[in-house]
Design a protein around this nucleic acid. Structure first.
Lengths: 116, 116
DNA sequence: TTTATATTTTACTAACTGGTTAATTAACCA
DNA sequence: TGGTTAATTAACCAGTTAGTAAAATATAAA
């Protein structure tokens, strides 16, 4: 049984699932709404499976409304994954500094503006 | 051939690999240095394979020094993954707001330092 | 009650993952 | 030269993943 962080990252490791999450970020959606953009490329059961991965990772929860299953985002595990990355970002960048690379061109401006 | 973002998240979806990245964040390390903390749980070829996943995702690059293979972090794809998450964070949190949930109980304090 | 819509389940693939042991390559050291 | 250390490769296995087609379930609508 993998840890939560691994479940979350694994769930993110697929463009279909990332797109579904992005759409859910705009609000609740039924399975067929979520599936619509992908039905050119895959069948509905395939989408159901992706959704199941997102559910098992705790990123999405599904309700019931008649024959519909309205899905909504659960941001918490995503926040934990983001935390992990933020927590190590400093070290990566330090590593990059050691190579004298990327930082100037990539992380200026607002990108990771958080701290305090 | 999966996209870079998927490769990156897939590489992160394993605690051994995350630990290796964390160690590399502190500086270069040879394969056996990287392997040391895990040799109670797995063999060296297993570590080599994990390292290969990190290399294929472009997160780690390996040099040569005599019989050693000094590995170092390449933070760039990690930054891209972080960007993706940051970019969608707002939407997740908006979604949470809509439910009036979690934020007060879960993210008070420093975690996702966001507005009042 | 029948029919249509929304979604899931089942059963089946092919490919990938994460691990193993044993053998191999590469470079140093005596 | 022979031996040791560092790391990879090869061959194999069990379990998971991502997809399919076809059947089943659940609810609404006529």
């Amino acid at each position: 049984m993998p840890d939560q962080l691994s479940l979350t990252f694994a769930a993110l490791a697929d463009p279909t699932r990332r797109a579904m999450l992005a759409q859910l970020g705009k609000g609740e959606a039924n399975v067929s709404d979520l599936a619509a953009p992908f039905l050119k490329n895959m069948t509905l059961p395939a989408v159901t499976k992706h959704l199941k991965v997102l559910e098992n990772a705790g990123l999405v929860s599904k309700g019931r409304n008649a024959q519909y299953r309205p899905c909504r985002l659960n941001g918490e595990p995503l926040g934990e994954a983001l935390d992990w990355m933020e927590q190590h970002r400093i070290a990566w960048e330090a590593q990059l500094d050691r190579l004298g690379a990327y930082l100037k061109t990539k992380t200026q401006g607002t990108r990771h503006g958080r701290k305090k």
